[in-house]
Design a protein around this nucleic acid. Sequence first.
DNA 1: CGCTTCTTTCAGAAATTTGTGAAGTTAAGG
DNA 2: CCTTAACTTCACAAATTTCTGAAAGAAGCG
Lengths: 165, 165
Amino acid sequence: MAEPTGAARDPEAVSRFVEHFAAQLVEAGLPRMPARVFAALLASDTGVLTSAELGERLRISPAAVSGAVRYLAQQHMVSREREPGSRRERYRVHGDQWYEALTNREAVIRRWEDALREGVVSLGSDTPAGRRLAETLAFFEFVEKEVEAMMDRWRAHREERFGRG
Amino acid sequence: MAEPTGAARDPEAVSRFVEHFAAQLVEAGLPRMPARVFAALLASDTGVLTSAELGERLRISPAAVSGAVRYLAQQHMVSREREPGSRRERYRVHGDQWYEALTNREAVIRRWEDALREGVVSLGSDTPAGRRLAETLAFFEFVEKEVEAMMDRWRAHREERFGRG
DNA sequence: CGCTTCTTTCAGAAATTTGTGAAGTTAAGG
DNA sequence: CCTTAACTTCACAAATTTCTGAAAGAAGCG
């Protein structure tokens, strides 16, 4: 306990937010445990928690924590840090990482594009179906480019509004 | 190759594309059957297939077709049409629908925003965690606005490149 | 008005996913 | 070099999801 910053907040209110937000993430396709762990980190004061803290707050086993953070790290949604001079591991959400993670759906889009390109070739670019696939492909290529520009604009907007993080 | 439109194309090549693209969609979080049905429609010449055709091409039961199209219709990824003077139902992918469907992740984002707003209030906007949530919220609000503008630009881009659909 | 054709619903079997306890692994500290 | 703290891996039990066959439900057509 004993958060240095600010008075102790109502732990139940925190938990309520964590579970509610996690539920939204689950509905959007994130597995349950990673969603809860992520939400717990978001709602923590420092944005950093150890495995033990996560297990305690969420009432889950060390194994579940381990699996969840592995997943989140792979998605670049958290980073792992070794607490120096200890075998404790710490997990952190970085404001920026969170945004970048969403952007990293790019990798997914890239694979869609590959599949579509293959489809255009094998169905024939002069067929109606081929044309439909080509247009879909064009859409994704467009989006990919636009998202990049959008993120630049966001970073500018953010700095203006919040100052550099 | 390059059969005239309407001639039977290599059905195996079509199937290969369908399954490959569907697999990508599944990996992105779409349930298996809806993904396969959607891919089959994308790869069809007219963009329209009946229940029976879908069942036959994908080797799945009528029940599976029914469940999949219900899902897809709810997500606005296909529209259902009653073939006049018949109890056959037809399912269609519309180029535009497909884009709009992706845009409709908006509804999801909206719910995330709600949860985050609630979190800012209950954690206190003067706490570090509250500030983190507020910044995340700002990000999504930004994205929401930007995506709208992006879709406008896409429609213009598309018309220029493909002519109006 | 009933027959026929197509679609949906429902209950259940099968497969997949999820989370746990327990053993295994790594590395700090004496 | 041995002890001990912390995380990871593994096998399995439980819960959930998914797809099917069968039966019920609409809607055109004679």
